[in-house]
Computed example of a mutant assay.
Amino acid sequence: MSKNTGIRKSRGDGYDRIEWLDAAGNKHAVRADNPLTAAEVIPGERTRRPGKYRGQSTYQGNYWCAGIEGHVFHESMAEFTGLMLIDHLYDIDQLFAQPMLLTFADGTFHYPDFLAIEADGTRHLVDVHLKSRTEEAHELAFKQTGEMCERLGWRFTVIDQLDDVVRWNLEALARYHHPRFTPSTRVEKQILRAATRTATFGELRAALRTDRPGEHMPALYNMLWNRHLQIDITKPLTDLTPLSI
């Protein structure tokens, strides 16, 4: 099989169109006007292949996603943080990087960054694009993508702010997002019982203290990652951080 070079933009035909590659690298296309046909979109290969070059300012790599228990490509560290946010906030069954080429009726086009298929079947397109780098053409592409998603019953999110505090909190919690840190049913119930009697992270940490230092901390962080316990990730995680169930 020839090397996948993605899908190149083509001329518009007066309709919004979705193009994607399956796992074998075969190209597929549907008009983006029918939720039933759009449900056929299951990407298998990336539709855009960003190059690498000397002096490149972005860092490409692969993020290990707890939701799918597998790796997802990212083109930059902003996308890496965006992937952590998606993985933390949503219950994901499948997650694809650069999943499709959208060609709009006027001939303009857009490659969304990610497609998440959530546990309830919702298709969720996500773009990670900081406001400081957003130009008029980007705003138009996001507007057209949002309108297409609304028509199809999909969700569309633009992550245009990545606060340092949010990133730090996600990185701290993501150290324990692997299933190996999932607490047993007994330990989870123990932590939840303690959480009903405490108001802050520090109080809960103290209530869980045993003669084995830090014994329950991996399980606690895993439960925070999976939102079994709730915190405000826009504020620094300290002993004074309020907790809720």
Rank of each mutant, 00 (worst) to 15 (best):
residue 22 D to W: 09
residue 223 M to R: 05
residue 71 H to I: 05
residue 177 H to F: 07
residue 61 G to M: 10
residue 222 N to C: 08
residue 118 E to A: 07
residue 121 G to S: 03
residue 200 T to L: 06
residue 37 T to G: 00
residue 241 T to F: 01
residue 145 T to Q: 11
residue 142 F to G: 01
residue 125 L to Y: 04
residue 46 R to A: 02
residue 84 M to R: 13
residue 212 R to A: 14
residue 204 L to H: 06
residue 83 L to F: 10
residue 233 I to T: 15
residue 122 T to N: 08
residue 11 R to C: 00
residue 195 A to K: 02
residue 75 E to Q: 12
residue 155 R to A: 10
residue 78 A to S: 14
residue 82 G to C: 06
residue 182 T to R: 12
residue 65 C to W: 03
residue 71 H to G: 09
residue 225 W to I: 04
residue 132 S to K: 13
residue 111 Y to C: 06
residue 158 V to H: 06
residue 242 P to W: 01
residue 10 S to D: 09
residue 91 D to N: 13
residue 163 D to T: 09
residue 222 N to D: 09
residue 179 P to A: 10
residue 193 R to I: 14
residue 226 N to C: 13
residue 49 R to E: 02
residue 215 E to A: 09
residue 69 E to P: 10
residue 36 L to N: 10
residue 174 A to S: 15
residue 86 I to N: 00
residue 194 A to R: 00
residue 9 K to T: 14
residue 8 R to A: 15
residue 163 D to P: 05
residue 108 T to C: 02
residue 91 D to Q: 12
residue 88 H to V: 03
residue 11 R to M: 04
residue 189 K to M: 15
residue 163 D to V: 12
residue 69 E to F: 02
residue 216 H to Y: 14
residue 27 K to E: 06
residue 190 Q to P: 02
residue 44 G to K: 07
residue 100 M to C: 14
residue 195 A to Q: 02
residue 121 G to E: 06
residue 64 W to T: 00
residue 52 K to M: 03
residue 84 M to I: 07
residue 77 M to E: 04
residue 209 R to P: 00
residue 179 P to F: 12
residue 205 R to A: 05
residue 99 P to A: 14
residue 81 T to E: 11
residue 78 A to K: 05
residue 236 P to V: 14
residue 19 E to Y: 11
residue 245 I to N: 12
residue 45 E to H: 06
residue 26 N to C: 13
residue 34 N to R: 07
residue 109 F to I: 01
residue 73 F to Q: 01
residue 24 A to G: 04
residue 139 E to N: 12
residue 23 A to D: 09
residue 70 G to S: 14
residue 180 R to E: 01
residue 83 L to V: 02
residue 178 H to D: 06
residue 219 A to E: 04
residue 98 Q to E: 07
residue 44 G to Y: 11
residue 50 P to L: 03
residue 152 L to E: 01
residue 244 S to D: 14
residue 111 Y to S: 03
residue 46 R to H: 01
residue 213 P to A: 07
residue 26 N to H: 14
residue 169 N to H: 05
residue 215 E to T: 07
residue 217 M to Q: 15
residue 75 E to S: 08
residue 77 M to T: 15
residue 213 P to E: 08
residue 125 L to G: 05
residue 47 T to P: 05
residue 181 F to K: 11
residue 42 I to W: 09
residue 164 D to Q: 03
residue 205 R to S: 13
residue 194 A to H: 09
residue 17 R to A: 11
residue 230 Q to F: 06
residue 112 P to N: 12
residue 220 L to W: 07
residue 55 G to A: 01
residue 17 R to I: 07
residue 167 R to C: 13
residue 100 M to S: 08
residue 82 G to Y: 01
residue 87 D to M: 00
residue 60 Q to D: 07
residue 200 T to G: 02
residue 3 K to I: 10
residue 229 L to P: 00
residue 213 P to N: 08
residue 25 G to V: 03
residue 107 G to E: 08
residue 203 E to K: 05
residue 90 Y to S: 10
residue 98 Q to L: 12
residue 33 D to M: 03
residue 148 M to I: 12
residue 25 G to F: 03
residue 93 D to T: 07
residue 133 R to S: 13
residue 245 I to L: 15
residue 96 F to N: 04
residue 40 E to G: 00
residue 12 G to C: 13
residue 76 S to E: 04
